[in-house]
Simulated scan of single mutants.
Amino acid sequence: MRWFLTVLGVIFGVAVFLFLDYALPSRQTVRITNTYNRLTEIGANAFFYASPDTGTVQNAQGQRDVRFIDTVRQNNKPYVYRNEDTGWIWPPYFKYDSSNLHAQATDLKSTAAAPQWVNVTSYGWRISWLSIYPNAISVRPVAGPDVRPFNWPAQLILALIGAFLFLIWRMWNQFRERTIDPAVRSADEAWDRLDARADAARDHIASEAQGRVRRWWNGIRGR
């Protein structure tokens, strides 16, 4: 049973880590090379795109007109963002300014000869073989490629989650100390009393049986 609980705990921990890694905002310093719209086929990866409730429109072939932002990181490796509204659904970024963000990103395009570095706040993963892209939330210029703004939104959310979990832990401990532990002690004491009575009854029955056997044997022997 212990190994099963251990495996269950590990699976739960990994699921929580992946959930937070996907949903929490991240920040990267990059250089924007291109911005464009593209008809993108939405299929099994629909979970990683905006919900239709945000006003997105798909044609009969399951294609959606999605805005993209091409960037290059400091190590010269490409990194592509999508730019979609999130609406009020999931995740709760309440983003409705994808058009404005697209215009801002277009204005910040630059070349390797005259780079303009920007810091992009986004959420999500980049998985090439599944055509999954992180969703850009905001873009702002920075002084250079080595600038790493502090990711205070993610740290604040983690702090709130930690405080909430600590509160739940404290409430559970108080509930256990006030309700569960006394009930367990009472049940243990009742079980001990019942066990003691059972032992006494068993000893009494054994003694009575031995006495009867002895009297029967003595009667046979004529004593």
Results as ranks from 00 to 15, higher is better:
residue 4 F to A: 15
residue 8 L to V: 15
residue 8 L to N: 15
residue 8 L to T: 15
residue 13 G to P: 03
residue 13 G to R: 04
residue 17 F to S: 11
residue 19 F to E: 08
residue 19 F to P: 04
residue 26 S to A: 06
residue 30 V to Q: 09
residue 37 N to D: 07
residue 37 N to K: 07
residue 41 E to N: 05
residue 42 I to S: 02
residue 43 G to P: 04
residue 45 N to F: 00
residue 46 A to G: 02
residue 48 F to E: 03
residue 50 A to S: 09
residue 50 A to L: 03
residue 53 D to I: 00
residue 54 T to W: 04
residue 56 T to P: 00
residue 58 Q to T: 04
residue 59 N to L: 05
residue 63 Q to E: 06
residue 64 R to H: 02
residue 65 D to R: 03
residue 65 D to E: 01
residue 66 V to S: 01
residue 81 Y to F: 11
residue 81 Y to A: 00
residue 86 T to E: 01
residue 90 W to Y: 05
residue 91 P to W: 03
residue 91 P to C: 03
residue 96 Y to E: 10
residue 96 Y to N: 09
residue 97 D to F: 00
residue 98 S to Y: 03
residue 102 H to F: 06
residue 109 K to N: 02
residue 113 A to T: 14
residue 116 Q to A: 06
residue 117 W to L: 02
residue 123 Y to C: 06
residue 123 Y to P: 06
residue 125 W to F: 09
residue 126 R to N: 10
residue 126 R to A: 10
residue 128 S to A: 08
residue 130 L to K: 13
residue 131 S to I: 10
residue 132 I to G: 09
residue 134 P to M: 04
residue 137 I to K: 02
residue 143 A to P: 03
residue 146 D to K: 10
residue 146 D to F: 04
residue 147 V to M: 02
residue 152 W to I: 07
residue 162 G to E: 12
residue 162 G to F: 11
residue 163 A to T: 13
residue 165 L to Q: 06
residue 166 F to D: 12
residue 167 L to N: 11
residue 168 I to F: 14
residue 169 W to P: 06
residue 169 W to D: 12
residue 170 R to W: 14
residue 170 R to C: 12
residue 175 F to P: 02
residue 176 R to V: 13
residue 180 I to A: 09
residue 186 S to G: 15
residue 186 S to Y: 11
residue 186 S to R: 14
residue 188 D to G: 09
residue 192 D to A: 14
residue 196 A to K: 15
residue 196 A to N: 15
residue 198 A to G: 09
residue 201 A to M: 11
residue 205 I to W: 14
residue 207 S to C: 07
residue 207 S to R: 12
residue 208 E to H: 07
residue 216 W to L: 04
residue 216 W to H: 05
residue 222 G to T: 00
